[in-house]
Amino acid sequence: MGAVKDIPARAVPKRALDYAEPILPGMIPDESELTAGVTIVPGRSYGFFTDTTLCIGCKACEVACKEWNALPADDVGLKGTSYDNTGRLSANSWRHVAFVEKIGGDLDAGEGRGTERNTTTMPPFQSNWLMMSDVCKHCHNAPCLEACPTGSLFRTEFDTVVVQQDICNGCGYCVPACPFGVVDLNVADGKAHKCTLCYDRLKGGLEPACAKSCPTDSIQFGELPDLVERARERVDSLHERGATDAYLYGAPGSPGATGDLGHLNAFFLLTDRPETYGLPSAPTRASNRVAPALGTGLATMAGLTMVAVALFAANRRS
């Protein structure tokens, strides 16, 4: 189910009635107009707005992603740290719903009970849950793309970042370059894998599988300018209703859009520190560290050479 908030109320039913038969003769042209209220046109910028205040942790997005992309389950079993059994984004899990439990009413906290930012005012032994469907951020200045020596990672006509499997040689440079820990190597095929923002579906005029399956519209797909506007309105609305800790992460000019990353095409509405959700507070481009690292290395080499020359000269004098 996608977002249809910005579409005139009568437009969607009228178009939907064109496809009222239970068995359709073929694909619905520009189906995303019906499911997400957006027409997918090459050359425009698309992304996700994930509103974590709406996520109920159903993991429909994870399942839809695995179904569409034929991704297998791996490392099956409870992690022991959460009710989550996926654990993290990986080569086989391109969506991951994080379950963050905030324990409230800490019996040992004494006077500080419920006053800490990470605790809640819930009664003892009850808890609050933060849930967030994490995904590749499809960064504006994508460090993985910059690190790829083969050109396997490329920017698509929809302003998303995709790994071309026939070109990837499995060097793995993209893995440490990603500040979010998204890209992963598959040990079976030796290649890098990550979310493609359903590149094949976008080419067919379909909304990405995760956004389409989200029952609460926590994951919204659309054109980036529209999503940013919608997200800012949502933050304002939450602030008006008393949820003053709501803020955007990864939208232009907000936390997460730091370190020359530009902005994130998949951005989030959070209500706690980014680290609580497993996101870096100030992600950076790996390429920004090349010059300082090279300079430091050269300076170290020069210093060691000077010490060696001095020792050698002192030895010769003695």
């Binding site: 569409w68 992309n69 034929a70 297998p72 499997q165 894998h193 094949d200």
Partner: peptide, 19 residues
């Protein structure tokens, strides 16, 4: 999908594979 595929065996059982 990429290096993954579903094969339906002669017995009609579907199974997921990766290269």
């Amino acid at each position: 999908q990429e290096s993954r595929f579903q094969l339906v065996s002669d017995q009609g059982i579907a199974k997921l594979f990766m290269l």
